[in-house]
């Protein structure tokens, strides 16, 4: 390996200025975190979709609400999806209000809807957690990387001012090491943006499904004697 022009990757990083190294470290951390969230959300949304489909299937094939409630809230080993929890909350509230004397039908339905809406919002909040992080990584980390690059290039050019005969060989290593910061920023940002868009779309579809389910379930409850 030559002493004069060693542009290996490790060399580039270890010889960058402190600020550029800090920026690179920050970007690496952010990148690892965002990938972690990407995979977390990927698994979570996949599970949620699967559970929702299973429960919809069960709901439309089994008209006995008591059995459904046991299925949806029984402490069996299987996980419960968001839709099951919405169903359980609405059903529990409906049964409680029905048992009370002197509550008219519209008040019962009102209370049931409120219970379902509360659970729906809690579930949406859970599904959307960490998405904001992905969004900010996607929008900010290119700028952070660019900042590191600009700083590194500024240093490279300032060092150049002391050299009488400026050649490309004087600037090239500095610029290369500075550009590593941009590469890392983009590496963190691109998957984060893609994942954010994808997951926002998936969650939006799930939310539509939950809403229409709670409407339909209200109708079913209203028909109950």
């Amino acid at each position: 390996m030559d002493v004069t022009q060693d542009l290996s990757f490790v060399h580039l990083i270890s010889h960058a200025s402190v600020l550029v190294q800090l920026v690179m470290g920050l970007l690496l951390l952010v990148s690892v975190l965002s990938w972690w969230y990407i995979f977390l959300k990927m698994f979570a949304i996949r599970d949620e979709v699967k559970l929702t489909e299973e429960f919809e299937e069960a709901f439309w094939h089994n008209q006995n609400l008591n059995e459904l409630y046991k299925y949806a809230s029984g402490n069996s080993t299987r996980e419960h999806g968001a839709m099951e929890r919405i169903f359980a909350a609405g059903f529990v509230e409906f049964v409680k209000l029905k048992k009370q004397q002197g509550v008219d039908a519209s008040a019962v339905m009102e209370g049931t809807r409120r219970a379902m809406r509360a659970t729906y919002q809690r579930e949406m909040d859970r599904l959307e957690s960490h998405l904001a992080f992905l969004a900010s990584v996607g929008s900010v980390s290119p700028y952070v990387g660019l900042f590191g690059t600009v700083w590194g290039i500024m240093n490279a050019f300032r060092g150049l001012a002391n050299v009488g005969q400026a050649t490309l060989a004087h600037v090239a290593p500095g610029i290369a090491e500075a550009l590593v910061a941009t590469a890392m920023g983009l590496f963190a940002a691109i998957p984060a943006v893609l994942a954010y868009n994808r997951y926002a779309h998936d969650i939006n579809r799930l939310s539509t499904r939950f809403e229409s389910f709670s409407e339909e379930f209200s109708n079913v409850l209203q028909r109950q004697p």
């Binding site: 690892v32 969230y37 977390l40 990927m42 957690s129």
Partner: peptide, 14 residues
């Protein structure tokens, strides 16, 4: 609330 699959997600990210 704790997301499921924390460990596999972390391993995959790394």
């Amino acid at each position: 609330y704790r997301e499921p699959h924390r460990l596999p997600a972390g391993i995959l990210a790394l």
